[in-house]
């Protein structure tokens, strides 16, 4: 049975600021169901976010919530987790927030293998500021600062995270909320740095600029290009208009849990070092 996630929300904060058809709410729903499934005590959850549409979600969730600066949520979360290792600390970040301005913190959080669950909302664009080019915008995709189509190659954030040492790496779709919930729950249980990229949609800007339709069409497009979420390769073409003249997207983006390993967790190692010493 699907639980009523409203118990995790702050009803007084409604209505929320997301645009109609935005994929972010689906991702938040999956996160809240994962909290519920793991029976986490809301007092012991901290939700930390940076700046952007996805980061604004934390304000609606009735846990300890920290809305920080652009790109730096992981650094704040690192301090908080070290101070309070018993907390479940979840970081919500966007593709611009986490991979653009905050890329340095992302790779170092992964390298340290600190027990944070980082959910990166990839909508291929800067939504909150009005649809500018992101480090994840597909080549030839149109953005307000790429009016003739993007000429830069986009990031594959999961590959980046595996290279940097994240011990749990997954990619899910807003289209597949139940699979996403499963992934997030496993990420939350994993002791170490868990990175989950979620392909979500910004119909307001990216959809509109690239004639990709509204929310439902964009979601269906995710599905069309994804045959089996846990196994099969998917291209990121869903975010670009299906134009025959557009160069074939040959960058395959894999979905599912892509990597899982055990490695000493940073906050634990840190406190173990403390435990063995005293002032003499």
């Amino acid at each position: 049975m699907i639980p009523d996630v409203r118990t995790y929300l702050r009803p007084a904060r409604m209505p929320h600021i997301l645009c109609p058809g935005c994929g972010h709410g689906i991702v938040l729903g999956a996160l809240l169901r994962a909290f519920h499934r793991l029976r986490l005590n809301p007092d012991q959850i901290a939700l930390v976010a940076g700046i952007g549409c996805s980061s604004r979600l934390v304000g609606y969730v009735d846990v300890c919530t920290l809305h920080t600066t652009h790109g730096r949520a992981l650094a704040f979360a690192t301090g908080l987790k070290l101070a309070r290792p018993e907390l479940t600390v979840v970081v919500l970040t966007g593709d611009g927030d986490g991979l653009g301005i905050g890329g340095n913190h992302l790779i170092h959080a992964a390298r340290r293998n600190i027990d944070l669950t980082c959910i990166l909302f990839n909508n291929a664009v800067y939504g909150m500021t009005g649809g500018q080019l992101a480090p994840t915008t597909p080549q030839e995709g149109v953005a307000s600062t790429a009016p003739y189509g993007n000429i830069e190659p986009p990031f594959d954030s999961c590959k980046l995270m595996m290279g940097a040492g994240a011990t749990f790496v997954a990619r899910g779709l807003a289209y597949e909320p139940l699979a996403l919930e499963e992934m997030i729950a496993r990420g939350l249980v994993h002791r170490g740095f868990s990175f989950i990229e979620v392909i979500t949609d910004c119909p307001e800007y990216y959809g509109r600029y690239n004639q990709l339709g509204k929310g439902p069409e964009m979601l269906m497009s995710q599905k069309r290009r994804t045959m089996d979420i846990m196994e099969i390769l998917a291209t990121k073409r869903f975010v670009v208009r299906d134009r025959p003249e557009v160069r074939a997207w040959n960058l395959p983006y894999r979905l599912g849990i892509l990597h899982e390993e055990e490695r000493p967790e940073f906050s634990q190692v840190c406190w173990q070092m403390v435990a063995g010493r005293e002032m003499v």
């Binding site: 920290l66 730096r72 650094a75 704040f76 690192t78 301090g79 101070a83």
Partner: peptide, 21 residues
């Protein structure tokens, strides 16, 4: 706890996070 961060931006961010904790 001592932690060497990746830059000064992260350093103060981590301090603020720890202080909140």
């Amino acid at each position: 706890v001592f932690v060497q961060m990746e830059d000064e931006i992260a350093s103060l961010a981590a301090c603020i996070g720890a202080s909140i904790g």
